[in-house]
C-alpha cells in the first residue's frame, strides 16, 4: 500500500473534462514530479489531493485513509498536506511571522510563544530570520516564496504539494527556492511537484509523470522519461522544452 494512492480520479469543470482517470501511487519519502504542457491538469490534480477541488469520480487515499468523497474531514486532511502556489499567496496584511504562525495557533491550538519559536527556527533555516517582522510586500519574489514554503511547513505536513513554485520568479531568484526543495527532499519529505524546471526534476525526483490532456501518459524514473521516453507525445513535449532552452 502506497502512502498516497490516486485511483481513477476524474474532474470536470462544467463540460470540460480536466482529469480523465488519473492513477498514481506515491510512496513515503518519494519526490514525484508532474510535467506536461500548460493546461494538461497538473494544478488541478494537486488541488484535488488536498480537497481544494472536489473530484467527480475515483478515490484518493492518504496513509490508508480515504480523503476524497463524502464524510471526510477536509481541515484534518489539509493539516497533513501542505501546498505552495505559483503566486505565493502570502497574506499581505500580516507580518511574515504572523503569516507563519496563524494556522499553527488557530488550527493546532499552539500557544503564541511556541508557534513563534517554531516559525523562527524554520525562517532561520531558509535564511530569512531577519525578515520576520516585515510585511510580505517588502520581500523579493524569491523571499516571499521561501516564506510560503515555511508557512506550509509550520503545520508539520506529511506531504508537500508544490505547484510551479518558481514560475513567477525572476531567473536569478529560482535557485534560492529550489535549494530549499532540494534540502526537503534530502531530509525525506514526501513531495509532489508540478514544474517546468526539467533539470531540477531530473535531479531530485524519484518518479516523473508526464500529463497529457488529463491523463498520465507515461511515468517512470527520471533517467527513463528524460533519456528514453516511450511515448511520442512525451518526446515532442521534451523537444519543445529543449528548443526553448530549458533543459
Amino acid at each position: 500500500m502506497a502512502f498516497l494512492e490516486i485511483n481513477q480520479v476524474f474532474k470536470r469543470f462544467g463540460q470540460v473534462e480536466v482529469l480523465r482517470g488519473i492513477d498514481l501511487d506515491v510512496d513515503l519519502h518519494q519526490v514525484v514530479c508532474l510535467i506536461g504542457a500548460s493546461g494538461s491538469g497538473k494544478s488541478t490534480l494537486l488541488r484535488c489531493i488536498n480537497a481544494l477541488e472536489v473530484i467527480d469520480g475515483g478515490e484518493i487515499r492518504l496513509d490508508g485513509d480515504r480523503v476524497s468523497g463524502r464524510g471526510i474531514d477536509v481541515d484534518a486532511l489539509r493539516q497533513e498536506v501542505g501546498i505552495v502556489f505559483q503566486s505565493f499567496n502570502l497574506f499581505p496584511h500580516m507580518r511574515v511571522i504572523d503569516n507563519i504562525t496563524l494556522a499553527p495557533r488557530k488550527v493546532l491550538g499552539m500557544d503564541q510563544d511556541e508557534a513563534e519559536a517554531k516559525a523562527m527556527a524554520l525562517l532561520s533555516r531558509v535564511g530569512l530570520a531577519d525578515k520576520a517582522t516585515d510585511y510580505p510586500d517588502r520581500l523579493s519574489g524569491g523571499q516571499q516564496q521561501r516564506v510560503a514554503i515555511v508557512r506550509a511547513l509550520a503545520m508539520g505536513p506529511k506531504l508537500m504539494l508544490l505547484d510551479e513554485i518558481t514560475s513567477a520568479l525572476d531567473p536569478e531568484l529560482v535557485a534560492e527556492v529550489l535549494n530549499i526543495v532540494r534540502d526537503l527532499a534530502s531530509e525525506g519529505m514526501t513531495m509532489m511537484l508540478a514544474t517546468h524546471e526539467m533539470g531540477f526534476a531530473k535531479e531530485v525526483s524519484s518518479k516523473v509523470c508526464f500529463l497529457h490532456q488529463g491523463v498520465i501518459l507515461e511515468e517512470g524514473p527520471p533517467e527513463k522519461i528524460f533519456g528514453d521516453p516511450s511515448e511520442d507525445r512525451t518526446r515532442e513535449f521534451l523537444k519543445r522544452i529543449v528548443d526553448a532552452g530549458r533543459l
Binding site: 488541488r47 481544494l52 481541515d75 489539509r78 499567496n89 496563524l102 494556522a103 488557530k106 506550509a152
Partner: peptide
C-alpha cells in the same frame, strides 16, 4: 487568498 488559508487547515 481563500485557497491559501483553507489549504492551511483554517
Amino acid at each position: 487568498q481563500v485557497a491559501a488559508a483553507r489549504s492551511l487547515g483554517l
